[in-house]
Design a protein around this nucleic acid. Structure first.
Length: 354
DNA sequence: AACTCGGGGAC
DNA sequence: GTCCCAGAGTT
């Protein structure tokens, strides 16, 4: 009897979610109310590991500058990164740019509709491909993002960290079994909306949940313990000195390697703790400089390490400026702030301006 | 299976 | 401070 009741509610999972989304879900986000696969694609990439509120400001500017696939494909990586500067995970921008060129070259400039082909584009994995296929083409493909993992882990009491391949496999199978035959847009949006507004990480609003009747975590009073949190480990603390090489109002920027942290962005030249700033300036850049008092150090936190940045101002004394140093440019501070910079570097320059 | 990729919102 | 977000790619 109890099992029968439960099964009956499980069958209603999707229809209840759809009905709820149409009334209580989000309908006015900047990337909604369109079927343009490009507009949806850009939003999905920006939203990877990034909250809606952080994306909104970037999305409008990005779409204004790159309104379609062709304009993005024809832009320089420099300008694409410039519009991504501050948003983080810059490989997303590089992959987006690369994929736009792939679509121009291999798909006649039209975003592919085939689910497998969508996934071959750089930066688009299984979940993002499903979101695009669902929103843009009404295909019955399921997403599995952080929201969905949390909703499913609670609703069906899936124990264990959702990041392990074993648990992920379970969740994918579960998610696929719940995909409805119609109303894919409302369903996919409903999964995201439920996780973002009702089935939140802390203090879920279970009273207002459309599928509370079949939620096993709620029945067993386990919503607080689920989903199982990621095992934490201590992250290393690193240090670096960034050279603020100043010639009058201009600062020298150095382009970072294409891969690795802040890949492809403009940053300040870095030296190790053992090196002496003025010697490096002379050795690497043939610049005679005078060291100023270091600025206050900045503590920057990444996912997997902490970085203490010591900004070291240096004023150039031999005014014969070197212009042919590879991967470097001189820019007035005001202009440099608008370049494709990592956030802490921008903050240093903003501090300098004052 | 573990690690690498940012920055910020919410608590 | 902690946790994790409309994850994907690499090792």
């Amino acid at each position: 009897m109890k099992n029968k009741q439960s099964m009956s509610n499980l069958a209603d999972f999707s229809s209840r979610l759809i009905a709820w989304q149409k009334i209580h879900g989000r309908h006015d986000l900047p990337w909604q109310n369109t079927q343009d696969p490009y507009a949806i694609w850009v939003s999905e990439i920006m939203l990877q590991q990034t909250q809606v509120t952080a994306v909104i400001g970037y999305y409008a500017k990005f779409m204004a500058r790159f309104p379609d696939i062709a304009s993005l494909a024809n832009a320089t990586q420099e300008e694409v990164l410039q519009h991504w500067s501050g948003l983080g995970y810059y490989s997303r921008a590089r992959n987006l740019h690369n994929a736009a060129q792939t679509i121009m070259d291999d798909h006649d400039g039209k975003f592919p509709q085939d689910f497998e082909k969508i996934q071959t584009l750089s930066g688009i994995g299984r979940s993002t491909a499903a979101a695009i296929a669902s929103f843009a083409f009404q295909q019955n493909q399921t997403i599995l993002d952080g929201n969905v993992k949390r909703v499913l882990a609670r609703h069906f009491v899936i124990e264990g960290w959702t990041g392990t391949p074993k648990i992920e496999k379970q969740l994918w199978a579960l998610a696929e079994s719940l995909v409805p035959k119609q109303d894919m847009v409302a369903y996919t949006q409903g999964l995201m909306d439920l996780g973002a507004t009702i089935c939140t990480r802390s203090k879920p609003k279970c009273e207002r949940c459309p599928i509370k009747a079949s939620c096993q975590a709620l029945a067993k009073n386990k919503t607080k313990e689920l989903p199982t949190s990621k095992p934490k480990k201590t992250i290393p603390q690193k240090q670096t000195t960034m050279l603020l090489i100043l010639d009058g109002n201009e600062v020298m920027l150095e382009k970072r390697p294409a891969s690795g942290i802040w890949g492809g962005l403009w940053s300040l030249p870095e030296i190790s703790m053992e090196e002496i700033a003025s010697e490096v300036a002379l050795g690497r850049f043939s610049l005679e400089v005078e060291s100023e008092e270091p600025l206050e150090s900045i503590q920057h936190v990444f996912t997997h390490f902490k970085l203490e940045i010591l900004p070291q101002p240096l004023s150039v004394t031999n005014r014969t400026r070197q212009t042919n140093i590879p991967n470097t440019i001189w820019l007035p501070i005001e202009e440099a702030i608008g370049a494709a910079l990592p956030t802490p570097v921008r903050n240093i320059l903003l501090h300098l301006k004052r």
